[in-house]
């Protein structure tokens, strides 16, 4: 008699592998499309699609928090901000000479090959003895509830154990907003100027 639990787990693994292959190949197709297209609108939309696919993939590999952030930031806000930024420039990228693509292509292929070679040494997926899971992560998982008293370890690490870090990150976001506003203006004045110009143009 076959062990039912064993069959179930191997079935799940097969389906996960199939979903992995599906999502990763869609990401590859999107990346190739991004590299070949010239229309900036299509590029911005496709980069949003790419972020959404990578968020899906993060969820598949159980990194739910990273996937959530990628979906909100990569697919949501950066697509919208790139749309806004793109309106300030021309709509299509310049066509470049084919031989000029040779050097960047070579760099990409070599870097990809090196990274693929490096994956041979990586520990297996979800390996409890891997360095990332063995030492500090275990410590956090054991100490979190007695120390902080909230069940989500990611939140307690980000907000409490590394609160100073998160303070710095919030500062970085704030400074980014201030820097863009200093470079481009806060928006109201340039908006009213643009609208005035439009009115004058129509007359």
């Amino acid at each position: 008699m076959a062990d039912p639990a064993h069959i179930a787990s191997s079935d799940i693994e097969l389906s996960v592998v199939l979903i992995d292959i599906g999502v990763l190949s869609m990401m590859g197709v999107t990346a190739i499309a991004i590299a070949r297209l010239r229309s900036l609108f299509a590029l911005v939309m496709l980069s949003g699609v790419y972020s959404l696919l990578s968020a899906t993939w993060f969820v598949i590999v159980d990194a739910v928090d990273v996937g959530f952030t990628e979906a909100a930031v990569g697919a949501g806000i950066s697509t919208a901000l790139l749309l806004g930024a793109m309106l300030l420039t021309v709509r299509t990228a310049k066509e470049d000479k084919p031989w000029k693509r040779l050097a960047p292509g070579l760099v990409c292929v070599v870097t990809g090959a090196v990274l693929l070679y490096a994956t041979i040494d990586l520990p297996g997926f979800g390996d409890p003895d891997s360095p990332a899971n063995a030492y500090l992560a275990q410590e956090y998982l054991q100490r979190n509830y007695p120390d902080i008293g909230i069940p989500n370890v990611v939140t307690s690490i980000l907000a409490s154990y590394r609160g100073f870090d998160t303070f710095g990150e919030t500062g970085v976001v704030f400074i980014a907003g201030v820097a863009v506003a200093l470079l481009l203006g806060f928006g109201e004045r340039s908006l009213s100027a643009t609208l005035m110009n439009k009115k004058r143009g129509k007359k």
């Binding site: 901000l81 300030l88 481009l184 203006g185 109201e188 908006l191």
Partner: peptide, 16 residues
């Protein structure tokens, strides 16, 4: 939320 909106307004104010 405030920073992201500020950035968006900075861009969008120029091409409404």
């Amino acid at each position: 939320a405030g920073s992201m909106l500020t950035i968006f307004y900075s861009f969008a104010g120029r091409a409404p």
